[in-house]
Design a protein around this nucleic acid. Structure first.
Lengths: 357, 357
DNA sequence: CTGAAAGCGCTTACAG
DNA sequence: CTGAAAGCGCTTACAG
């Protein structure tokens, strides 16, 4: 029954079953106009013919005809070579993969478009390629507003792993609840008696950094304390340390990749961490630092973010329109009570410059 | 110029450029009938129109019309849940991914079809799904002859990661050169004075086990020694050890996952490895054993196998028909001179039952 | 050198 | 309940 080198089509099935091709399509999809129903006997004939011919739909044709291909794409802005950050990014991918499996969709990795690090898809003319898939998960450390805008304009279902702001719209995302987690860390430090708590950012202008900053500021303000922020891209760890010491800071909450260098600089200077200076780390580092430190702080729910991102894409593919609120989700971070934070050293007898007037 | 919510098609481009849709397709593909050439000025008009409209081909339509989609699939027979063997399988995947990136094709992971461990694609009616892609890399520990046969019959380009025999044809694969590697390990043991060298298989009937067995037998025969093989699936490590000791075996070459248990059993019995018994491991274990042993033996070139498998698929997609020999490749394993092998303990004064007559 | 037209295998109004 | 037909966006003979 099966023809050499050629797959069975709906037409083949129809011929064998003695029905029209339309009917075959109908028993396959079920969900035609007005729940179009096929009589039980016709359905059985068709099902038999399908079994005999070994028919299976051609996904390209389905997609072209306006149906779904059951393929969700995943595009990562990060370079695949070198695999330096692979350990950091793999858990996100794993979450996406696992959720894809659970949902019965296939996952298209846009490996062909890699290698233009830091470039938007729009600027390199590769946005259209995403359309092979029904929707796409976007993953990467940077922000690419023009891509988000273009995808929104095209009504193309997507979700970013991590919160990203689109200039003129609501871009779907699965983010980590950095604000809440940072707030919790600050409150922990407050409970330990710290008052001069500084936020140290390794870079600026990124949504994830803004989220942490908001959590930090809110927690400080609630406690009646003045927020003190250092943006470190232009400072060496040594200069940073000078600034912290100069300000009488007893605890620093530090974004992921900067925590380890700061701690090393403090140790090198003869400071005891955490006795002299408490350091809390706001998230897993992207680059492993090779040290085995029991950090106080929080972990990024990477697996969950990946899984949720896929789910958000699927939500946009669902029959009923999705509630916009369901397309932007924040996932709690895991708080870790480690060994890099200790009670505030001594009751500070000096005037408190950080205290609000 | 760009229409809201709708992508530009070749028709849009043609309209804007004032040419036919066929011409647009021609300047895009170049490789029409008899190197069909478009005049330079028309070509420029078309290129301009493409830039203005932001046109990019719809891959589903391309594929349906008989072109290529530049998508290669990867199907893994292993379960994604639980991730127990993930560490073992990831390097294969990585090789496939890296090669896909280098070749400019996208990689479709058939996550939707997972979850039927040990079942062939044919038996569960999922072969056809592979056709979304231009070709497919197959990965898994088992052998699925009926899938290979079906894929060969369909003339569908594919490659298995690991040698697999198809009942009625030549199935493409990228394998590890287990035979050569095993032979080299045996020769190393011979050079150390061992004569009673046994092969221990953790299971049987698998191509990779057969390859090792061949390498072992050839090396032993060349040295004028009688091969002694133990198939362990039905033996406990203790029983196996009894058999080895009973046969006066001084060195065992053991397939991947059985090496560690055998060594532990020997140590538990008060034997010194390698002084009393040399054990060489034939390949990386699939399940990590949690020990940190410096094994003598060889490593499976997993990354390379994955990369080669993809290349073999691409070779079948190339314009000129591929030489069948190029579709079955064996990649050398990395030999490791570790600490689980030592010179043969004492000149054996007993009669040598293993010596050929 | 360029265009009109068929066809890939589906889905989905639109008629019966 | 079922079928004839249009159309999705391409590629590729086939005519000019």
């Amino acid at each position: 029954m099966v023809v050499k080198g050629r797959r069975a089509t709906q037409a083949d099935v129809a011929r064998l079953a003695g029905v029209s091709q339309t009917t075959v399509s109908m028993v396959l999809n079920g969900t035609g106009v007005a729940q179009r129903r096929v009589s039980a006997e016709v359905r059985d004939k068709v099902l038999d013919a399908i079994a005999v011919t070994g028919y299976a739909a051609n996904p390209s044709a389905q997609r072209l005809a306006g149906g779904r291909s059951s393929i969700v794409g995943i595009y990562t802005y990060e370079p695949v070579f070198p695999h330096a950050a692979a350990d950091f990014y793999y858990p996100f991918m794993e979450g996406v993969e696992d959720e894809a499996e659970r949902s019965g969709v296939d996952l298209l990795m846009f490996t062909s478009m890699s290698g233009r690090v830091g470039k938007s898809l729009v600027s390199t003319g590769r946005v259209a390629r995403l359309r092979v898939a029904d929707g796409c998960v976007l993953l990467g450390r940077g922000s690419y507003p023009e891509d988000l805008t273009e995808l929104l304009r095209q009504d193309f279902p997507f979700a970013f792993v991590g919160r990203r702001e689109a200039p003129g719209g609501q871009a779907p995302y699965a983010a980590a609840a950095y604000g809440e987690a940072t707030g919790a860390v600050v409150e922990r430090l407050l409970a330990l008696g710290h008052r001069r708590i500084a936020l140290v950012n390794e870079f600026t202008g990124h949504e994830s950094i803004e989220d942490r900053a908001r959590g930090y500021r809110d927690a400080m303000s609630s406690a009646g304390l003045q927020p003190v922020t250092f943006d470190a891209p232009d400072l060496t760890s040594g200069q940073l340390l000078d600034a912290l010491e100069g300000g009488g800071v007893t605890a620093a909450v530090v974004t992921s990749d900067l925590a380890a260098p700061l701690r090393r600089a403090a140790l090198a200077r003869g400071l005891d961490v955490p006795r002299d200076l408490s350091i809390a780390r706001l998230g897993d580092p992207e680059r492993p630092d090779g040290e085995d430190v029991d950090w106080t702080g929080f972990l990024i729910p990477r697996w969950e973010m990946g899984a949720h991102a896929l789910r958000i894409v699927l939500r946009q593919l669902a029959a009923e329109p999705a509630d916009p609120d369901d397309l932007q989700v924040s996932i709690p971070c895991t708080l870790v009570d480690g060994a890099t934070v200790a009670p505030c050293p001594a009751p500070d007898t000096r005037p408190e410059p950080n205290r609000k007037a």
